[in-house]
Design a binder for these strands. Structure first.
Lengths: 237, 237
DNA sequence: GCGCTTTCTTGATCTGAATCAAGTCATCTG
DNA sequence: CAGATGACTTGATTCAGATCAAGAAAGCGC
């Protein structure tokens, strides 16, 4: 957990992000000069909900779980994969975090002071536009997640999740789950026990699971059951 | 459902909105000149999910239900009250609507062409900042809604909703529900039948309901059950 | 006023999903 | 290697909430 200024070798990864790709060099360097990079072991809590947002975070490698708690219960809200930012909204509005974050595995995370982000927002028109676009994107993702939760049963959510992963794996009929089942369960809003049963319940639709390896026999068959909808399942729109 | 350019008498209401209050007069007038105002009867569908977003909408009077459908099911996502905008994210990203909108009652709605909004965003630094701030706010609202859904039972959601309304009514111990119970049920993610039962289940905590009139006997008692949390229930943070 | 519709309530029943409890399996550790 | 640990599965049970069905109350048109 060593803390240091950001090495220049990390610049290109960040520069590639939609959020930073269009801005002026000068402003980009301003952000980078104020930034830190830290390496974290697995299961370290990076952020606690309710704390004030001092840094915009960027996952450079590994992965980060965003979760929330209330009254002794806990739920996964989403996962941040490289290379992407998280808690942008709190940074922008200088408001307390609504979610906690912890590393799922060994992870490398960049930290840009929130005040730098807000300052550069005022100075760089393109950066401002990128932030707006990113925020709108984030907003739309949550809306989709909410529709998914309110309109579908847990079995339907799993089926659509599998279709999404299948697509993301390059439209092959076999792929590996990207995380352990207990977290997948929480993401899908169900218990681990029920996820187990849900996988079995999808067998009649041609879904076979072995460990974390999934095989889909007949995509059309599964689609008939899952009824995927771009307004819920398509991450790009 | 007459369509006209916006009368100047509506300008002040809109100008007061956080989104428009800081921008330059000139830019504000540009937006207003391109805008329309329409009067709608109750239960008219203003927007259908999936359509492309040609206008930023502003409720001037009445109220608008934002809802979504999938596979024959339907759910209320939120309600837009005067004076506020809706579907800002779709407008900004020039993306299809994720939610449909219908008037709940006779309503007056202003329409600003999306391309004007995007153009002025580039021209007015203060407007850009206001949009970002508004979007971040919207994002955070949905996150809160999602935490509410995933972490609480329907009874807990109702209890916290009542506390929120009580606060909004000026901390008095009696107030009226702001909409009909079937919609409240949908907003809280439950059926009308269950909402009925939930009200009865809150009686031991001092909640009395008569029609749409609510009386809370002992606020502390209800709070002990509801365990309100600013990171879920406080609309301002 | 009277019918008509719609909302709301209440009870009975059903179901999806959580919980509880064991047991399996794989991995890690001394 | 034995024992511990943690992830996953499976079955039995419970529970929250949905659905179904019917009646009560309230609003509305004529």
């Amino acid at each position: 957990m060593v803390r240091l200024g950001m090495p220049e070798s990390d610049y290109p990864d960040i520069r590639e992000l939609h959020l930073f790709s269009e801005m002026a060099d000068e402003q980009f360097m301003t952000l980078m000069r104020g930034a830190y990079v830290q390496n974290f072991p697995p299961r370290i809590e990076l952020i606690t909900e309710g704390d004030s947002s001092d840094f915009l975070h960027i996952v450079l490698s590994g992965s980060v779980d965003l979760f929330s708690s209330w009254s002794g219960r806990e739920t996964s809200m989403s996962t941040a994969w490289p290379v992407s930012t998280f808690i942008l909204a709190a940074t922008i509005n200088d408001a307390p975090y609504l979610m906690s974050a912890r590393t799922l595995e060994k992870s490398r995370v960049a930290l840009i002071p929130s005040q730098d982000v807000r300052a550069v927002f005022g100075a760089d028109q393109r950066f401002a536009r990128a932030i707006v676009s990113e925020l709108a994107q984030c907003y739309r993702s949550v809306i989709k997640a909410q529709k998914n939760l309110k309109l579908r049963s847990s079995l339907e959510r799993l089926a659509n999740y599998l279709l999404q992963q299948q697509k993301q794996s390059g439209n092959v009929n076999e792929f590996d789950l990207r995380f352990e089942k207990r977290r997948l369960a929480s993401l899908l809003g169900m218990t681990p026990e029920n996820l187990s049963r849900a996988f079995k319940a999808l067998r009649p639709y041609g879904v076979a699971i072995d460990g974390n390896h999934v095989r889909i026999a007949d995509l059309e068959d599964l689609k008939r059951f899952a009824k995927p909808d771009p307004l819920i399942d398509d991450p790009s729109t």
